[in-house]
Design a protein around this nucleic acid. Structure first.
Length: 483
RNA sequence: GGCGCUAUCUUCUAGUGGUUAGGAAGCCGGUUUUUCACACCGGAGACACGGGUUCAAUUCCCGUUAGCGCUACCA
């Protein structure tokens, strides 16, 4: 009985693309690919107050940037539109009315104030906050009375208590929750006529024929509620899998409120992290490659992913580890890719003066030492800046000695014979000069480094010379001698 | 308060009824290098606690503790 795998990521546009959402999207994506299924993006925008089109844009762009492209849904279309909940408000109402007709739901006339009072009383008596189901048995007279008062009802779903709702969670195993702990009859349609999350989700998952629901474990209690709705709808529920949450270093759920931009995927893009690294990092937080491999791409993960290998316990978001992944991709991705991705970080320089080949050589000479794309700018600064500033301290300690002058002027006079374009050759030329002058090590190399790059550390010296080229090497040597 | 989930080095994790409890990041030391980085080698570093079950428990069961999550006419 192999039903078609259909999974979804269903973000709410009440904030930018969140790290946790990206992780959930990733697991859904991988699961769909693993089983040849369909991965769907749908927007849960029923909270009209907080939803914002800019957030939708950020989420859509972010998911695409990560490479988590969906087969069906928002901006892509598919057989079960619409993929925005606000476009099917009437449908949810219709479904709610069907439940009312079946006696599974009813109109509740309680006001916000009344509910708030109830809650306060419960809090005062130290009992669990819940709706007291007062609207279940309203008489026609009472109903009429409330209507005449101008009260606008919400729709509440009737929760039978006590009753145990249980399911086999594909990640957590058996989970059982008593309906008595669910807070009483729940609102499914707000008095403004808009369905509430727990109801709209179920309707959509039914409409869109979802086979599996993979989401964060903060939804476990929602799953119990939703299972009751599936039952009332007389519809088979999908399989559920609740992934562990992502924590911060203090072991708290990663949240926009507490962490601000640090939970925003695009923030990492701006900082110079690459999608491959982020996806790889996010993936391995709670899922381990069967062979223990650390570095793998989406395709490889998709071939191996499964929910029973997903950890049950939460993972801490550790930037040091993300850094490591990013640095791995920075030195292993094709050089052309890195050069292209470095462009946004080089806008302070006039790179049009250099050919693509030259820029590529520059990037190649520095990328081993970097962790983010953003560091490429500073690392290439000495290549790209028209003027090189050598600080006084360095001048005094490295450039001012007699030997330093010998090295620099010696190199200056051999410039014409340097094998430009041949990194190793240039390095050999410097070594040859060293032999002549009976100098080596720091005494030989540091003056050249300082004169050419303003630093005593950096890429291979031969590469530096060769890439800078005769003209710039000449002028920098001269200004180092004459400072 | 109620309910739920979780518990292996600092962090992410592997793993098994009998293992010197493995790997990765970070940290420390070394090799290499003109330097930084990379790479390589090495080091420190963990089964929360208490009961069971068992010849034997990190592993299975129960409890405790702790952490986290959920408890809206938010999603």
């Amino acid at each position: 009985m192999s039903t078609d795998v259909r999974v979804r990521i269903a973000p709410s546009p009440t904030g930018n693309l969140h790290v946790g959402t990206a992780r959930t999207a990733l697991y859904n994506y991988l699961y769909a690919k693993r089983y040849g299924g369909t991965y769907i993006l749908r927007l849960e925008d029923t909270d009209e107050e907080r939803s914002n089109e800019n957030y939708t844009r950020d989420i859509v762009d972010g998911l695409r940037w990560l490479g988590l492209n969906w087969d069906e849904g928002l901006e892509v279309g598919g057989p079960y539109p619409p993929y925005r909940q606000t476009e099917k408000i009437d449908h949810y109402s219709t479904m709610a009315n069907q439940l009312i007709a079946k006696g599974k739901a009813y109109l509740c006339y309680a006001t916000q104030e009344e509910l708030a009072t109830l809650k306060e009383e419960q809090k005062a008596s130290n009992s669990a906050p819940r709706y007291d189901n007062r609207g279940r048995e309203l008489s026609e007279v009472q109903r009429k009375h409330y209507q005449d008062e101008g009260r606008i009802p919400s729709v509440r779903f009737l929760v039978d208590e006590p009753q145990v709702v249980s399911w086999h969670d594909q990640i957590k195993g058996e989970i059982a929750i008593d309906t008595s702990d669910l807070g009483g009859d729940m609102v499914i349609v707000k008095s403004n006529g808009v369905a509430i999350y727990n109801f709209a989700v179920v309707i959509d998952d039914v409409d869109m024929k979802m086979s599996h629901v993979i989401r964060g474990e903060d939804h476990i209690h929602n799953t119990a509620k939703q299972l009751l709705i599936y039952e009332a709808l007389e519809h088979k529920a999908p399989q559920f899998g609740h992934a562990p949450l992502i924590f911060d270093l203090e072991r708290q759920k990663l949240s926009k409120r507490k962490h601000g931009e640090a939970v925003h995927i695009d923030h990492y893009r701006i900082l110079g992290y690459m999608p491959e690294a982020i996806v790889n990092y996010l993936g391995q937080m709670s899922w381990t490659h069967p062979e223990g491999k650390e570095i793998y791409d989406l395709e490889e993960a998709a071939a191996l992913f499964d929910l029973d290998k997903v950890s049950k316990s939460p993972a801490v978001f550790d930037l040091a580890r993300l850094n490591w992944f990013n640095s791995q991709y920075l030195r292993n991705l094709p050089l052309d890719t890195i050069v292209e991705r470095a462009q946004p970080y080089l806008t302070t320089y006039d790179t049009s003066r250099y050919t693509k080949a030259e820029l590529t050589q520059m990037v190649a000479s520095v990328r081993e030492g970097l962790t983010t794309l953003a560091e490429i700018g500073p690392a290439l600064s000495f290549y790209l800046s028209s003027q090189l500033d050598v600080n006084d301290e360095l001048k005094a300690s490295v450039l001012d000695s007699e030997n330093a002058h010998k090295v620099l002027s010696g190199l200056l006079s051999t410039l014409a014979s340097l094998p430009w374009g041949d990194h190793q050759g240039c390095k050999k030329a410097v070594d040859g000069l060293g032999k002549e002058l009976a100098l080596k090590g720091k005494e030989l190399y540091w003056p050249v480094r300082a004169a050419l790059s303003g630093k005593t550390q950096g890429p291979d010296l031969g590469a530096m010379i060769s890439i800078l080229g005769a003209e710039r090497v000449k002028s920098r040597l001269e200004s180092a001698l004459n400072h």
